[in-house]
């Protein structure tokens, strides 16, 4: 690695001050599982590294007036261990569990995963299916936006180098919304997704309500399958409808062929995984309805 100056922030306010002080030749370090890999092969690197991994205020996972707030610095292991998340959104636990292996999950953070913004990121689809928002801190203060607007392109987000992703918020209206995540890779461990999918929905009088489908690894950024969603909304819950939604989603995606899989194979995976994610979310929704009636 090229030489750099190293400074450490104890909280988000100090991080902001350090970023402002060191300007544009600065790079933020969280878990380092993407950044250090990148810096090891880079021909030139940042002059200053601001290590935010000890900023305790950015690690919190809690319910707030806005919804479920997950600090950008929560590691994938901490998400898997959070009782709050386990109770409310097991799909987020499942998604975190598919990332790399134990060692990577112990260091790697949710924020780092979103900021690196590779199309195959495993934490994206579930959050997008739950219409998550992100909070960004910059020189002009804090602002919020939907996660879909945060992603700009492969390895590109809306963040400026001196801006901080503070937390990720699942809005109140979606707390407890049934959601399911599925990933298909070449192996179970240490494998990037060929396709990953999340589906969230409510079921009312046996029809789909607010279905949301998010697809990863099949477009420049994690995408919503809005045509498949529109097809399902208000439609009766049947196996045929879910199969058709899978077919529509496969048509909406723009998968590529690479050394891992062909575009055709990825399309087949989208259709099958979308259908299965919907089926599982429906099961969760029905179980919830029964729980309410009791």
């Amino acid at each position: 690695m090229r030489a750099f100056e190293y400074v450490v922030a104890r909280d988000s306010a100090q991080a902001m001050a350090l970023l402002a002080e060191h300007g544009s030749s600065v790079k933020i370090l969280a878990g380092g599982t993407d950044l250090l890999v990148e810096l090891k092969s880079a021909s030139h690197g940042p002059q200053v590294i601001v290590d935010i991994s000890r900023a305790e205020d950015m690690k919190k996972i809690s319910l707030t007036g806005e919804g479920l707030s997950i600090g950008a610095l929560a590691t994938h292991s901490e998400i898997m261990d959070s009782q709050l998340i386990r109770d409310m959104f097991p799909a987020l636990v499942d998604a975190a569990h598919t990332i790399g292996a134990v060692q990577t999950r112990n260091l790697g953070t949710l924020g780092g995963n979103l900021v690196t913004c590779v199309p195959s990121m495993d934490s994206g689809p579930t959050l997008i299916a739950l219409e998550a928002l992100v909070t960004i801190a910059g020189a002009e203060g804090r602002r919020q936006m939907p996660l879909t607007d945060f992603f700009v392109g492969p390895r590109k987000t809306i963040l400026k180098p001196t801006e901080l992703l503070v937390d990720i918020i699942i809005p109140k209206k979606n707390l407890g919304k049934p959601v399911h995540f599925l990933k298909s890779g070449l192996r179970k461990g240490q494998a990037l997704a060929l396709v990953n999918v999340a589906a969230s929905l409510w079921v009312d009088k046996n029809t789909f309500l607010e279905p949301r489908i998010a697809l990863g690894a099949v477009a420049p950024v994690v995408m919503r399958a809005t045509q498949a969603e529109a097809y399902l909304a208000g439609r009766a819950v049947t196996p045929e409808a879910m199969m058709e939604a899978g077919r529509i989603a496969a048509g909406e995606a723009r998968p590529i062929t690479d050394f891992r899989a062909s575009a055709e194979y990825r399309r087949d995976l989208i259709a099958v995984l979308t259908k299965r994610a919907l089926e599982n979310a429906v099961l969760l929704a029905q179980a919830k309805l029964k729980g309410v009636k009791k």
Binding site: G32, T33, V102, L107
Partner: peptide, 13 residues
């Protein structure tokens, strides 16, 4: 208490 890859952690961390 947690296993990590020492190659992906800075000594200062």
């Amino acid at each position: 208490g947690k296993p990590v890859n020492a190659c992906l952690m800075l000594a200062v961390q």
